[in-house]
Design a protein around this nucleic acid. Sequence first.
DNA 1: GCCCTAATGCTAATACTATTAGCTTTTAAT
DNA 2: ATTAAAAGCTAATAGTATTAGCATTAGGGC
Lengths: 183, 183
Amino acid sequence: MPRVGLSTAQVVSTASALIDEVGVDKLTLARIAKHLNVQLPSLYKHISSLQDLHERLVVAAQHELLGTMKNAAVGRSGMQALLALAASAREWGVAHPGRYSITLAAAHTPGDGSEEMLEFTLRILESFNLTGDDAIDAARMLRATLHGFISLETRGGFGLPADVDRSFQRAMQGLGNQFSAWS
Amino acid sequence: MPRVGLSTAQVVSTASALIDEVGVDKLTLARIAKHLNVQLPSLYKHISSLQDLHERLVVAAQHELLGTMKNAAVGRSGMQALLALAASAREWGVAHPGRYSITLAAAHTPGDGSEEMLEFTLRILESFNLTGDDAIDAARMLRATLHGFISLETRGGFGLPADVDRSFQRAMQGLGNQFSAWS
DNA sequence: GCCCTAATGCTAATACTATTAGCTTTTAAT
DNA sequence: ATTAAAAGCTAATAGTATTAGCATTAGGGC
């Protein structure tokens, strides 16, 4: 039996691809194993349990999303940064609905990207001259609006197909205007 | 064996309670059956499958949430209606995290509450003098912000406990202000 | 080049899950 | 009272995650 040379990273990677295809609730070890041409129990040499795999998926997805947003925001500030980061997050979420759906992990697992996300968001808001409690309020509103929009879109919550792009653009523009005038 | 007098409504009801306690992913037919003092296969006399039960749970949760919001908005308009509906939705979501988490169903199942939700939202926005495409954009932004906020809160997305009430109030107030000045 | 060790992938077994079939008993309507 | 439908049961099946134990392979030190 020729050894295939598996690794934890490979298992996480194919699992990530699978949840985008079949949905996170239909991710099964058998499916992953078949994709990797391996027997199911062999996966346990690289992950300790399904929950372990889930946690790894969450952390990976969070960092992918965060990296995408940071990339989009580099070299920009204020409204330009906000619009760029928002568009990139939405684009990534739509392209990877399964991965996106797990970016809000319940428990703070080790390696969690939520603190980094908060720092990043606050940094962006600094360019709106927002600090302290004002910045926290703004960060929460930004994250809520962005996450809510992407969630609704990827889960088919927008019944009418009426120009979702325009609705998104308008929402983010409005958000930025508010931040600019945040007394 | 004394018959216990089960019904579909009872099964859905206890399942609803259970997903708030243990989480929707840990809802199991065995758990429901034990709660109802019944053997597991007996449930199939009232539901046709686990997926069937899930669809019923979604519809029930959607209507509970919608009813709560409508109740809060009755007799109010404009900003007052918005703040009341938003607060009631958040309160219900925090009190019923499992139920809330399924209110965004992927497929439009029969009896779905999403159309009714859209009509309700548009009615509220009429009192902001918003109609047509403007109203659709506003409805999407309202739903996104509200859903995003409740999702983040119920899933522990707000690391800092710094006065979430105030952040919410401020977000909703800002939303209403935008709707009032929506050119 | 060889040997030992650790890691890799396997088969087999276990305890859970949902689901179906078939039976018995109860309920309710005629 | 009789009958027919429905309710709940036990038993069986296929699929799930997980563990134990075995064989083989790969790599490092001599």
